[in-house]
């Protein structure tokens, strides 16, 4: 029971942290470099504990993110839904990819996410963003191994402490 609780703490803590990182500012010069933290963390949990992260969870989390950032309600829901669906569909393969290959898969996911954003903005009549828009996924790809190893290590430690 205790173990479940620590697991849950790591899970909810990492998602809260992702929300805060998403809002935390960067210096103006490198502002476009910010990766989509929320998606990265959510993808990790979808790969590792898919019983927690379903489509409904992604949908709700997206709504919360939209309320926080005050854009179009439902935009991030759609983005996270598409992402989590692909991850869950290919989960059994993604899990056993070596880390390099996994990282490339993440890049593809994040690029796909950008295309979804462009579609939503196109339909809602927003102006198209600048070229810097496409840098985010690359930074997200670079950040992925660190997030993956960090969270994996954290969970492994907790498990070791229990036994």
């Amino acid at each position: 029971m205790n173990r479940r609780r620590t697991q849950f703490l790591i899970f909810s803590g990492s998602i809260l942290l992702a929300f805060l990182l998403q809002l935390t500012p960067l210096p103006q010069a490198i502002i476009v470099l910010k990766p989509y933290w929320l998606a990265l963390v959510l993808v990790y949990w979808a790969i590792e504990t898919p019983d927690r992260v379903g489509l409904g969870f992604a949908f709700l989390l997206g709504l919360v993110a939209d309320v926080l950032t005050g854009q179009l309600l439902g935009e991030q829901s759609l983005r996270l839904l598409v992402m989590i669906f692909i991850v869950l569909r290919f989960r059994s393969r993604l899990r056993f990819f070596p880390i390099g290959q996994q990282t490339l898969a993440i890049l593809a996911l994040l690029l796909n996410d950008r295309i979804v954003v462009l579609m939503v903005r196109g339909f809602s009549g927003d102006p198209m963003p600048s070229m810097g828009f496409w840098i985010g996924p690359v930074i997200g790809m670079i950040a992925w191994p660190f997030i993956f190893l960090l969270l994996d290590d954290l969970r492994a430690r907790m498990r070791a402490k229990e036994t």
């Binding site: 489509l55 949908f59 709504l63 309600l73 439902g74 829901s77 759609l78 839904l81 669906f85 939503v120």
Partner: peptide
């Protein structure tokens, strides 16, 4: 995951948007 659920959620997101 079933595609049906995905379609349901996607429709919901689009309606909300």
């Amino acid at each position: 995951v079933s595609t049906l659920r995905l379609i349901a959620y996607l429709t919901m997101a689009m309606i909300i948007m």
